[in-house]
Design a protein around this nucleic acid. Structure first.
Length: 682
RNA sequence: GCUCCCGUAGCUCAGUGGAUAGAGCAUCUGCCUUCUAAGCAGAGGGCCGCUGGUUCGAGUCCAGCCGGGGGCACCA
C-alpha cells in the first residue's frame, strides 16, 4: 500500500542518484511532512548529497539544484502525482490520491508474510503468593500487546508465564499459614475454596494481607528469618508436608491470577514452573554445557575463589595505567554462577531455563493440560511427574529467540542470562538469531501521594514531599488489579446505564466490562516502557480525552454511519468500482479534498506503525497512532463539509463512505492489537 | 565509585537528526432540533534541566555538569 509505494520511490531515488551523480546510497531517509500541503513524503537527501558530491568531485552544488534533478526523474513514475522542491532543498512527493485510495478501498487479506522460527514471549510471571497489583498488570498488558503486534507482523509467538512456585515469597505465605495462623492444609483449603461473596474473601486477597503480616512478624524478631530459610529449603526439596502446602497455595494463587488476567483478555500458552526446573535437574545439564563451552570458569584466587563465574566484558579497563586496582575492578564485575559451597545462584537457574527456551538444554519438561482459557484455548502447565504428564502435548520451547517482559530492576541479571545463552550459540547464524532475544524492560508503576492516602496509608512527612511512592507487597501497599477493574466496571456501568436504557442489564454489564478493559489497557499503553507511571486514581478512571473509551466511541461512530445508511460496505464498494479515476480524484481536490486525503493517508499508515512497534518492542506507538487516527476522524466527523448521510452528490457520498470504511477498518485493527474490543453500543 | 533510565506547557506525557516543538488533563469562551456531546471549535500557556561540541540543520547525537529514580550480593 502506501508503504510499498514508499519503498518503490526510495529504490528509484537510489537509482537516480547513481545515474546522475555516480554515488551509491544504501538507504534513503524519508519523513512525513508536517502539513498535507507540503506533500505525502519528503526526502531531505539533497543536503547530504551536496556534501558527498563536494567530497567526491570538489564541485559545489546547491541542494535545491540537486533536488530538482532528482525530481525530474521521479515525477513520471506510477503512483506519483507530482514532485516539488521546498525550502532549502526538500524533495516533496505527492501521491496519486485516487490510485492510493482505490488500493486502500479493497481490503487486502490480513495475512502477513510468515516469519521463520518462533519467538518465546514471557510475561506476567507474578510471584504466586498474593493478589496481582497494577504494576503486574502493566507487565501483562505490555507483554500481551507486544505479542499481538508481533503476531500481526507474521511472527510465530509462544506465550509463557513463569511461575516461581518455590521462591521466598511463596515461603513467606507458607510461614504465615503454618506459624502465624497455625493452619493445616485442610484449613487452608477451606479458606481457598470458600464461596466468595465479596472481593476481600478471595484467596489472593487473603494472602495479600497475610504476606504483609508475615513481613511485620519478621521485623519483630529477626531470628524468625530462620523459620523462613527452613521453610524455603523444605519447599525446594519437595515431597514433604511444607512443600505440599506451598504447592497448594501457589497453585490456587496462580488460578486467581489467571482469572484476573482473563478479565483483561490476557492468556498464556504455557505456565513454566520453577519446581520442575529444580526437580528435573535442568541446572546440572546447563552446568555441563557452560563448563564445556568455557562460558563459565572456575576461580582459583581473588574474592570469588572457589566459585564458577562468568567473566565480565573483557577489555574493560584496558586504558588504565595498570595499577593494582585494575585486576580487582575487573574481577568485581564477574558474575558468580556457582557458589563456593557448590550451590547454584538464581542467575544460573535462569540460564538453564533460557537454554531450554531455545531448545539448547537437551532436556524437556513434562506437561499437563491445566485449563481452557476464556476463549476456549488450551493452557498448559509443566509438571515434574512423568506419569501425570500428557503424552500428546504441543511442542513447547525450541524458540529462535526469547523476549522477557520484566521490570527494569532486573536488567543486570537479564543481561547475564543473555550473555551466557549467546555464548553457547554454536554458529554465527545461530548467534545472530539468538541475539534478537531481549529483555523488554519497563519501569514500575508507583503511587502518587494522593493515591497512597486513598489506599489508607499514613504518609510520613518525607513521603508527602515525594512525587511518588513505591508500591510494596511486603507492606501491603498497592492498587490491587481486581479492585481497580471493579471500580472501572462500576463507573462504566453507571455511564452505560445513563445512556442506554433500552438494552438488557446483562448487555449493559458486558459493555461496561469492555469499556473498563479499554480504559485500563490504554492507560497502561499510553506511556513508553521507560516512563515511570505515577498511578493516580483520577487519571486511571478517566473515560474522556486520550483514553480507551474515546477510541471505542470513535469506532462506534464510524459504524453508526453504516447502520444508519442501511447498506453494506460491499454494496458501497460496488458503487465505488463504477467510479472513474477522475471522479475519485475530484473528491480529493481543493481544501476539503486535502482534509479528506489527510485522514485517509493517516489511516493508511497503520502497517508502518505496527512494524515500528514490533521492531522496537514498544506497543505505545500503536496506541498513540490509534488515538491520533480517532482524533482526526472525530474532527472530520464534525466538519460541516462532510455530512455523509446528507450528501446529495451520490458519487461524493460513495467516496466519503469508502473513506469512512477505510478508517473504521484501520482503527478497529489497531484496537484489536491493543486488546480493546468495541462495544455494540455506547 | 561504576552503570542504566528520566528531566519538554500549571499537571501527566508524545516527539525514526530535518520545515512554525505536539497531545491529554486543568483554566477560560462557544456548540446538543444531530450520521455528532465518552464529542467538536477557539483562547491562553514553552531559555525542550544547564554549558560546550559535532552538523547545512540538534528537543533528538557526543562530552561535562545539575536534579530525580533504579541497578551494581557466594539474595531471589
Amino acid at each position: 500500500m502506501a508503504s510499498s509505494l514508499t519503498t518503490e520511490i526510495k529504490q528509484r531515488l537510489i537509482a537516480l542518484v547513481r545515474e546522475n551523480f555516480a554515488l551509491e546510497l544504501e538507504d534513503v531517509v524519508s519523513e512525513i511532512p508536517p502539513k498535507t500541503e507540503l506533500g505525502d513524503l519528503a526526502f531531505p537527501l539533497a543536503f547530504d548529497l551536496a556534501k558527498r558530491i563536494k567530497a567526491a568531485t570538489g564541485e559545489k552544488k546547491n541542494p535545491r539544484e540537486i533536488a530538482a534533478k532528482l525530481a525530474e526523474g521521479l515525477k513520471t513514475g506510477p503512483g506519483v502525482a507530482r514532485v516539488e522542491i521546498a525550502g532549502p532543498g526538500y524533495l516533496n512527493v505527492f501521491f496519486d490520491r485516487a490510485r492510493t485510495f482505490s488500493q486502500l478501498a479493497n481490503p487486502q487479506s490480513a495475512i502477513r508474510n510468515p516469519q521463520p522460527g518462533k519467538l518465546i514471549v514471557e510475561h506476567t510471571s507474578i510471584n504466586p503468593n498474593k493478589a496481582a497489583h497494577i504494576g503486574h498488570v502493566r507487565n501483562s498488558v505490555l507483554g500481551d500487546t507486544t505479542a499481538r503486534i508481533l503476531k500481526a507482523t507474521g511472527e510465530t509467538v509462544e506465550i509463557h508465564n513463569y511461575i516461581d512456585n518455590t521462591g521466598v515469597q511463596v515461603a513467606d505465605v507458607v510461614v504465615g499459614f503454618m506459624h502465624l495462623e497455625n493452619k493445616s492444609l485442610a484449613e487452608i483449603k477451606a479458606i481457598a475454596e470458600r464461596p466468595v461473596t465479596k472481593r476481600e474473601d478471595s484467596f489472593d486477597y487473603y494472602c495479600w494481607e497475610l504476606y504483609s503480616r508475615v513481613g511485620q512478624w519478621y521485623e519483630g524478631d529477626k531470628t524468625r528469618l530462620q523459620i523462613r530459610a527452613q521453610t524455603l529449603h523444605e519447599i525446594e526439596e519437595g515431597n514433604n508436608a511444607t512443600a505440599e502446602i506451598g504447592e497448594y497455595i501457589s497453585s490456587r494463587i496462580v488460578d486467581c491470577h489467571l482469572e484476573t488476567m482473563a478479565r483483561l483478555d490476557i492468556s498464556y500458552d504455557l505456565l513454566a514452573r520453577e519446581s520442575e526446573i529444580l526437580h528435573l535437574h535442568f541446572w546440572a545439564h546447563a552446568f555441563e554445557k557452560l563448563k564445556a563451552s568455557g562460558a563459565i570458569v572456575f576461580e582459583t584466587e581473588g574474592r570469588s575463589k572457589g566459585c564458577w563465574v562468568m567473566r565480565a566484558e573483557e577489555g574493560r579497563g584496558d586504558r588504565e595505567t595498570g595499577g593494582q586496582g585494575e585486576t580487582e575492578s575487573e574481577h568485581d564485575a564477574d558474575k558468580i554462577i556457582v557458589r563456593s559451597n557448590g550451590t547454584v545462584t538464581y542467575t544460573g537457574k535462569d540460564i538453564a531455563y533460557h537454554l531450554w527456551k531455545l531448545g539448547k538444554l537437551g532436556l524437556d519438561f513434562h506437561y499437563r493440560l491445566l485449563r481452557h482459557d476464556h476463549h476456549g484455548r488450551e493452557v498448559w502447565i509443566t509438571t515434574g511427574d512423568e506419569a501425570a504428564g500428557s503424552k500428546s502435548h504441543p511442542t513447547f520451547g525450541n524458540g529462535t529467540a526469547f523476549l522477557n517482559v520484566i521490570d527494569v530492576g532486573q536488567s543486570y541479571p537479564q543481561a547475564n542470562v543473555k550473555k551466557a545463552v549467546v555464548a553457547l550459540a554454536t554458529s554465527v547464524e545461530e548467534r545472530a538469531r539468538v541475539a534478537r532475544s531481549a529483555h523488554l524492560a519497563y519501569e514500575k508503576v508507583t503511587l502518587t501521594p494522593a493515591a497512597a492516602v486513598e489506599l489508607g496509608t499514613e504518609l510520613s512527612e518525607a513521603d508527602q514531599q515525594r512525587q511518588q511512592i513505591g508500591m510494596s507487597g511486603r507492606k501491603g501497599l498497592g492498587v490491587k488489579a481486581d479492585d481497580l477493574i471493579d471500580r472501572l466496571e462500576a463507573k462504566a456501568l453507571a455511564e452505560v446505564q445513563s445512556r442506554n436504557t433500552d438494552i438488557s442489564e446483562a448487555q449493559q454489564q458486558k459493555i461496561a466490562r469492555q469499556i473498563a478493559v479499554a480504559a485500563l489497557r490504554y492507560f497502561l499503553l499510553k506511556y513508553t516502557r521507560t516512563s515511570i507511571i505515577a498511578f493516580d486514581f483520577e487519571e486511571a478512571l478517566k473515560f474522556r480525552g486520550e483514553t480507551g473509551p474515546y477510541l471505542q466511541y470513535s469506532v462506534r461512530r464510524l459504524s453508526n454511519i453504516f447502520s444508519e445508511l442501511g447498506r453494506s460496505t460491499d454494496d458501497v464498494r460496488g458503487d465505488f468500482a463504477k467510479l472513474s479515476p477522475e471522479e475519485v480524484t475530484a473528491q480529493f481536490s481543493g481544501e476539503a479534498g486535502d482534509t479528506l486525503w489527510s485522514l485517509v493517508y493517516f489511516a493508511s499508515r497503520l502497517d508502518d506503525t505496527v512494524q515500528l512497534s514490533a521492531s522496537t518492542f514498544e506497543p505505545t506507538h500503536v496506541a498513540k497512532y490509534a488515538f491520533q487516527l480517532a482524533d482526526q476522524f472525530n474532527t472530520f466527523y464534525q466538519d460541516k463539509r462532510f455530512h455523509i448521510l446528507k450528501e446529495s452528490d451520490p458519487k461524493r457520498k460513495t467516496v466519503l463512505l469508502i473513506a469512512v470504511d477505510v478508517v473504521r477498518q484501520k482503527l478497529s485493527q489497531a484496537l484489536s492489537l491493543l486488546g480493546i474490543e468495541v462495544p455494540e453500543k455506547m
